[in-house]
Amino acid sequence: MSEIKVIDAINKALEIGLEKNPDLILLGEDIGKQGGVFRTTSGLQAKFGEERVVDTPLSEQGIMGAAVGLSINGHLPVPELQFDGFIWPGFDQIINHITRFRTRTRGRYTTPMVIRVPFGGGIHALEHHSESMEAIFSHIPGINVVIPSDPYSAKGLLLDCLESKDPVIFLEPKKIYRAIKQEVPDEHFKIDSKKARILREGNDLTIISYGACMYDTKKALPEFLKEYPIDFELIDLVSLSPIDYNTILKSAKKTGRVVIINEENPNCGLASELSATISEKCIKYLKAPVKRVTGFDVIIPLLKTEDHYLPTKTRIIEGLKEVINYK
């Protein structure tokens, strides 16, 4: 066990992956010599060489296209797209090829790969660096979308994804790349990347979150629980596509109260999808309407204003209160 951060957890998982699987290839902009814009791949090129940790030209379409070819030919590409906002030139490959090869060839060819994407806001970065576009990725059939919320899950989930037979978009919440230190096993271990994690079991309120918002939710909880010391259940969604409805619906039926916290633009979002399904399947069990605490339907603003876009502690607590005080 070592106390490490999300960034180290990802680095370690990639290192283990490269050691275990000789077909695994990392590719992306500045991931080799420089170790990636966030340093997630730091030291890996020095250890595994330029043919396994490949610095690519600045072309997301090219990176993703190369990944398709590598994948069909038996390699396991792990492309890194520097920021979620830069994914769109490569999105053509994702939506038109990567998600479809299995169907298109009736199972003869598949395109397993793990597309790593630093994700979400909260670091006061430039335009195109802070978007929360998980709903768009999750909307497409044929690809799994996975997001960790702490160092432990970052390592375990990435190692699980590296063994997936399907392509995965692995969203890395950049706000918490370095914010949390946690004891994580040094050796290889896996966390089921298609299952939600119940971080605390409880009977009276289900709180669902993921990524960096789980970090913010945990920070808001002590103040809320001081006033309302209730028996809450906390669920880390983990798999945004497919959604682990077994866990979610069971919890919703048990507690009858659900709050979903994420940082996306709410219109047609993942929180809406969860809310709709919970309402559809559990309506008779609900003790309050399902509450969504999200970002707003605007382009995520820059710098300090960004803090008001993201679910603040106040908004999270208000959302929780609204549900438990519903009359």
Binding site: K5, F38, R39, H124, A125, L126, Y177, A179, K181
Partner: peptide
């Protein structure tokens, strides 16, 4: 040392 070349401000558990 690893923190330095990063776009934006990341909260760092070591400094926070």
């Amino acid at each position: 040392v690893k923190n330095d070349n990063v776009v934006g401000n990341l909260v760092d558990a070591d400094n926070a």
